[in-house]
């Protein structure tokens, strides 16, 4: 039997459940918003790496430990982790389905959480405890 033809109307109809009805719009907006903020993250990353590549711990503490730099950096790492999770979800939805999707999506969430917790934790440690 032939697969039913997917038309624009089929996709637009919420009853067909193409994509998550409750979350797809939010994920789209999240991805665009975090993506725009990531332009600032890339600028900050390049600034820090150019200043600190190969430098001593003392220099890292002096620059990243400055709250005006460290706190925005911690915030931006959280934004990046959100963007990573959402972007990887897009990829996973294309290739995996059902239980396999849920399992790999969980690993995705865990990895992004790890990046956020370790990254933000390290920066906050540098800011508040040197």
């Amino acid at each position: 039997m032939r697969e039913p033809l997917i038309t624009k109307d089929t996709i637009a109809n919420p009853r067909t459940h193409y994509g998550s009805a409750s979350a797809s719009t939010r994920r789209f907006i999240t991805q665009r918003t975090t993506g725009a903020i990531n332009i600032a993250f890339l600028g900050m990353l390049l600034f820090l790496v150019i200043r600190l590549a190969g430098e001593e711990r003392m220099d890292v503490v002096a620059l990243v430990g400055n709250p005006w730099i460290g706190l925005p950096l911690a915030f931006l790492i959280g934004i990046v982790a959100t963007h990573m999770r959402n972007g990887m979800r897009d990829t996973l939805e294309d290739y995996l389905h059902g239980r396999m999707y849920s399992l790999v999506m969980m690993l995705n969430s865990l990895f992004c959480l790890l990046i956020a917790v370790a990254g933000i934790g390290a920066v906050l440690k540098l800011v508040f405890w040197g």
């Binding site: 990243v64 982790a81 972007g87 370790a118 934790g121 390290a122 540098l126």
Partner: peptide
């Protein structure tokens, strides 16, 4: 995008080592 996903661990490893 996937490379950046993996590459973020390089930044985090550096920051954690510095901390």
């Amino acid at each position: 995008g996937i490379a950046n996903y993996a590459g973020m661990s390089l930044l985090v490893i550096w920051l954690v080592a510095a901390a």
